[in-house]
């Protein structure tokens, strides 16, 4: 690959702003509705039910039960949805850090597994590896942070 040295120009700044705008917009489209739904649920008994059911599993990672909402949304929808849940729940910095490392290794399973398959990897293996990395890193962060 030949390195064509493009010069810095106003265009560089423009593209940076545009991609910042793009990410913020894509994030907002998902974050705002999720934030509204989770805030609404917080005022109903449903969230307590979810928290109680998920508490034993989430406890392994030092997370409160309702953090399961972020993990589930992150894996089924995408990271932005998980962020929406994290923003609306009341979590400590340590809890957000544990969620962050778990979600970084394992998110958007539906879309990204299709991509990995396109390149030729087996879907089952990719999902297994990512979940294992998330579980191990979550437990480790809980122990060492």
């Amino acid at each position: 690959m030949q390195s064509v040295n493009k010069k810095l120009s106003l265009d560089t700044l423009k593209r940076g702003i545009m991609s910042g705008l793009h990410i913020t917009w894509e994030l907002s489209k998902i974050l705002v509705p999720i934030y509204f739904i989770v805030t609404f649920l917080k005022h109903t008994p449903i969230i307590d039910r979810v928290a109680i059911i998920s508490a034993p599993l989430m406890g392994v990672f030092g997370l409160p039960g309702e953090a399961a909402i972020a993990l589930v949304l992150g894996n089924i929808v995408n990271l932005y949805a998980a962020i929406g849940a994290i923003a609306s729940l009341t979590l400590t910095v340590k809890e957000v850090t544990i969620l962050a490392v778990m979600l970084c290794f394992c998110h958007s399973l539906l879309v990204e597994t299709v991509l990995a398959k396109k390149i030729g990897l087996s879907a089952v293996k990719v999902i297994a590896v990512r979940m294992a990395l998330a579980i191990v890193s979550g437990i480790a962060f809980n122990l060492f942070l």
Binding site: G16, I17, G20, T24, V32
Partner: peptide
């Protein structure tokens, strides 16, 4: 809450994206 979260994220994402375009160019 949702708008202040977006504002928080935007203040980090914009400088980062501009920096990445500069590195590319």
């Amino acid at each position: 809450g949702s708008f202040s979260s977006i504002k928080q994220i935007a203040t980090i994402v914009f400088p980062l994206m501009i920096a990445m375009e500069i590195l590319k160019d």
